[in-house]
Nucleic acid binder design. Structure first.
Length: 271
DNA sequence: ACTTCGACCTGTTGGC
DNA sequence: TGCCAACAGGTCGAAG
């Protein structure tokens, strides 16, 4: 269920356990994720040192000297740091074992996630090549979005959730950001003014920064073998609040479906 | 080039 | 209390 803040929190959580450690083994229990885990991944990665633990969009990747291990958590994936004594649970699909005895373990009940390998420049990888800017990058601003929006007829909500426009805005933060910016989620992307894109960009950045900070304070011990990994409840203004009063004007929050996803908004505050 | 929609999978929840 | 349908925070790739 990870949105970008959870992915970044996961990256930060696993980083100190893996950086500069040598991979001693890769154990695959289930190949069939969104795409098959490459059969030769253990052969490629074993013996290599993990140089960096990075994030791009909602992908986490481990940089080795001979390539990268790309990880996506899909809808239900989670990462934890284990030891060889940690019980393997159902849906624990892959272990990446390193030289200090720690194990990076991916659990993903719905199997929408993936673990892939690339030997080439990560930015040339098919999944990375056409990604839009990071939402917290300074190149992501109102002018950029206005230009991208052009005369497009798709809804502003699906526009900001489109990874070719900007990455990392998931279903929850799309609703939350549009509420903060006062924009109706059904509005055509092409009809949003530059001034309103300014508000929207600020809202997206603020929402994400706040959540990442909250993740950092919530995250005490990522090894959390017994409980959940570094996910965290967040204060939501509209998401999941159907029929509850708007925090600004008091009118009931509405729910609608867009592209088969739930959208929550205030019809009085968002035009 | 743009938009919509199906597909992938299992666990949880809410209504009857 | 139990059953079943609906739903869940992602996103690619095909089809129109």
């Amino acid at each position: 269920m990870p949105e970008l803040p959870e992915v970044e929190t996961s990256r930060r959580g696993i980083e100190p356990h893996l950086r500069n450690k040598t991979i001693t083994d890769v154990i695959i229990r289930q190949h069939k994720l969104r795409w098959p885990i490459p059969k030769n991944l253990p052969a490629l990665a074993t013996g290599q040192k993990v140089r960096q633990i990075c994030r791009r969009a909602k992908y986490i990747y481990l940089k080795l000297d001979n390539g990268c291990i790309i990880i996506h958590l899909g809808m239900s994936g989670s990462l934890r740091i284990c030891t060889k004594h940690t019980t393997v649970e159902k849906h624990d699909h892959i272990d990446i074992c390193v030289s200090n005895g720690k194990i990076l373990r991916l659990r993903d009940p719905r199997k929408f996630g993936c673990v892939l390998w690339t030997a080439d420049d990560i930015n040339e990888h098919k999944l990375f090549k056409s990604l839009g800017p990071e939402p917290l990058d300074e190149t992501f601003d109102a002018t950029y979005l206005r230009n991208k929006a052009g005369k497009r007829s798709c809804s502003i909500k699906s526009f900001i959730m489109n990874s070719h426009m900007v990455v990392g805005v998931g279903n929850i933060y799309a609703s939350e950001s549009l509420f903060k910016a006062g924009i109706n989620p059904k509005r055509r992307a092409g009809s949003v003014s530059l001034a309103r894109f300014e508000k929207l960009v600020s809202a997206i950045k603020n929402t994400l920064i706040e959540s990442i900070e909250q993740g950092g304070t919530t995250l005490k011990d990522f090894t959390a073998e017994d409980g959940q990994p570094g996910y965290f409840a967040q204060k939501l203004l509209v998401y999941g609040r159907k029929d509850e009063p708007c925090t600004v004007c008091g009118s009931p929050i509405k729910k609608l479906n867009q592209q088969a996803r739930s959208t929550f908004y205030c019809s009085r505050c968002q035009k």
